Computed example of a mutant assay.
Amino acid sequence: MTEHPRPPVPTEERHLPEVDAGRLWAGGLATALVAALIVIVAAFVIQAFVTIPVVPPLGATHLGDMVTLAYALLAALAAIAATGLLHVLLVATPRPLLFFSWIVALTTVVAVVTPFLAAASRNSQLITAAINLVVGIAILSLLNGVGLSAVRRP
């Protein structure tokens, strides 16, 4: 007795996960706020306790410095970009959170190494690298959780 191959299942019946875009982007915006606040709070704490410039070679050293605010905005934009990436991966790839984690982790490594390419003191480079590491970890961990909560399985 031979087995007949099953006909292909129409796309509607494949039980693909649905992405709740509203939930995903709300979580992405919240992550952007956290990323920006990490930079601002770090700059504030560093200014309160040490006299090391936060952003080499530009020398943002205190809360309210325009460069510190630009740095915070850049961290927020990184979180928004990561949310966009996560959205694409959730709808288009198998194991999207694994790919997302690798991409964000490798991008974080670049952000951590970048301050060491600037002409600045070693302490300034270390402080900036540490802030970049914390921002990267925050984006990775928060958006992984957001990604899990934004996927609805039929």
Results as ranks from 00 to 15, higher is better:
V45H: 02
L140Q: 07
I131M: 10
A26V: 14
G22I: 09
G59Y: 06
T31F: 03
P56A: 00
V41C: 05
G28Y: 06
A48F: 06
G28Q: 01
T114W: 13
P57K: 12
L98V: 09
I38Q: 02
A150M: 12
L140Y: 07
A60E: 06
S124F: 05
L90S: 01
H15M: 09
L33P: 03
L86H: 11
I40D: 09
L58Y: 14
F44Q: 12
A119K: 15
T114K: 15
A118C: 11
P7F: 11
R23W: 10
V151Q: 14
I131G: 00
V9W: 02
P57Y: 13
T68C: 07
W102C: 13
L16I: 03
A32L: 06
T107G: 15
G84C: 04
P154Q: 05
Y71I: 04
H87C: 05
F116N: 15
T107F: 07
G145R: 08
V45C: 03
A81L: 12
V151P: 06
V45I: 07
A129F: 08
A120W: 00
A21M: 10
A72K: 02
L77N: 15
F100L: 06
A48W: 04
N144R: 11
V67K: 13
R14C: 04
L69T: 09
H62Q: 08
N132D: 12
T31D: 06
G28K: 04
R23Q: 11
T61M: 09
V151I: 12
A70E: 11
L98M: 06
I127C: 04
T61C: 07
R122S: 13
V9N: 05
V9K: 14
I38F: 01
S124R: 00
L24F: 06
L90V: 01
A43G: 15
A129P: 05
T11K: 13
P53R: 12
L86N: 08
R95K: 09
I46V: 11
E18Q: 14
L117R: 14
A120T: 12
A36H: 05
V135A: 11
P10G: 00
F100K: 05
T68V: 13
P115Q: 03
I127G: 00
A21T: 14
A36L: 00
A130D: 08
L73S: 04
H62E: 09
E3S: 10
T107L: 10
G147E: 00
N144Q: 09
S101E: 10
A79Q: 02
T108F: 02
R153Q: 14
V113K: 11
P53L: 07
P10I: 00
P56W: 00
A130P: 08
G59M: 04
V50C: 02
S141F: 15
P115N: 01
P57E: 13
V54Q: 04
A111E: 08
E3L: 11
Y71N: 09
A82D: 12
I131S: 03
P115Y: 00
L98W: 08
A75N: 03
A36E: 02
L143Y: 05
V91Q: 15
R153D: 14
V104N: 03
L133A: 15
M66C: 00
A72V: 01
N123L: 15
V39M: 09
E13P: 04
V55P: 12
V110H: 10
A150L: 13
I38K: 00
